[in-house]
Design a binder for these strands. Structure first.
Lengths: 200, 200
DNA sequence: GGACGAAGTGGAACGTGTTCCTATTATGTC
DNA sequence: GACATAATAGGAACACGTTCCACTTCGTCC
């Protein structure tokens, strides 16, 4: 586990290092946004971030780690934006659907970026478990927050429900980024799933 | 779409060609079973099938097409085995869980093969949409059959429920083959999802 | 300020998916 | 049987993820 982890902000002592890390993730973000998974080439990232290829690999041990970390940063950002305002909606399902729609619309506005990040997520193996896990927790917590705003205690069923919704969301996203379903179908399917799970 | 399709059995005129195709899929199957996605190397497949690399690419335009075609063949086989006997269980959820467990156990008995096929499935883009779609339909129909054995009419909710279960199944499978969750966790999560969806 | 280890640079090199080219072999037509 | 066309063999070549190495720079301790 310790053998192949991405360097987190906390691992980095100097300001220069934190800056390198940021430049790398910024470059990754831009390349992904412009050309998707295939455009995020390690040499291109290194060039754009003004960093040697070997250094890039010291910070992120693989392309997958790199993309999943970039996904994590974006997700944190989305989550903090979401946290600023209370979630509108009378019922849990209305609020969950609001969160999903908002998030999905954000992703669908950046198809290349979404394709790159989703592909990476799906291809990630055990060595990326840490990065994946933190993204998963973030998503689950966003969903449980929408279900029970401000709640401090959650039942097992709440968490399980959130995870199922997360699964559906991921499958729908994969189908969409691989061109196997349209944005409209994706939304409809997710709404349907929420309705089936949260009958309120 | 028409530009990059795998050659199907129907496309092939001579017996020699059908035999080449079969040798290729057999070689793919064996390599996948032994070493998973990474072991299915195009040169190795070509060698094992006694076929030139260029010929392999004439039959299957990419590694993904090759693996998804192999997946299709295996899935049809599994489905025909399942169809032979009535599904045991008193309630829809019991029957669905039976089907999921049986299928999952089959897959987990061949972890390398499953890993190779799931990876290919997740990485497949629009050019493989046809093959993917038929596999998806097969899974959905297996699940609706388990929910309502022998039913001729299905509600939209039945189909949506089956698709949600399929999504969870796929996510769980991905998590398992990528080493992010254990076989036991996979089963538990799927059972949980079914219970949440089919409260009977 | 000098020494030393860690981190970074620059780039060569390797593996594997994919493409491409030429020579050879099948297949079908007259 | 001679020929035209397509299919296949064999393998070189290219792209990109990844590894590795020799060298330089940076940070820290004396």
């Amino acid at each position: 586990m310790s053998s192949a982890n991405s360097l987190t902000v906390d691992d980095l002592g100097s300001a220069a290092q934190r800056d390198r890390r940021k430049r790398i993730l910024d470059a990754t973000y831009e390349l992904a946004k412009e050309g998707g998974f295939d455009a995020v080439q390690m040499r291109a990232v290194a060039d754009k971030a003004d960093v040697a290829l070997g250094t890039l690999y010291r910070y992120f041990p693989s392309k997958i780690h790199l993309l999943v970390s970039a996904l994590g940063r974006e997700f944190e950002h989305a989550e903090s934006v979401l946290r600023e305002k209370p979630i509108p909606g009378e019922t849990p399902s209305e609020r969950v659907i609001y969160v999903l729609k908002k998030t999905t619309r954000g992703l669908q506005g950046d198809p290349h970026l979404t394709e790159a990040l989703t592909r990476a997520f799906m291809f990630a193996d055990g060595s990326v478990a840490n990065e994946i896990h933190s993204v998963g927790m973030l998503l689950t917590s966003m969903l449980t927050q929408a279900m029970h705003p401000g709640a401090t205690e959650l039942t097992n069923d709440d968490i399980a429900t959130a995870r199922v919704i997360g699964d559906v969301w991921l499958s729908a996203l994969v189908a969409w980024v691989t061109g196997r379903s349209t944005a409209v179908e994706t939304s409809a399917h997710m709404e349907n799933a929420v309705r089936l799970l949260l009958r309120d």
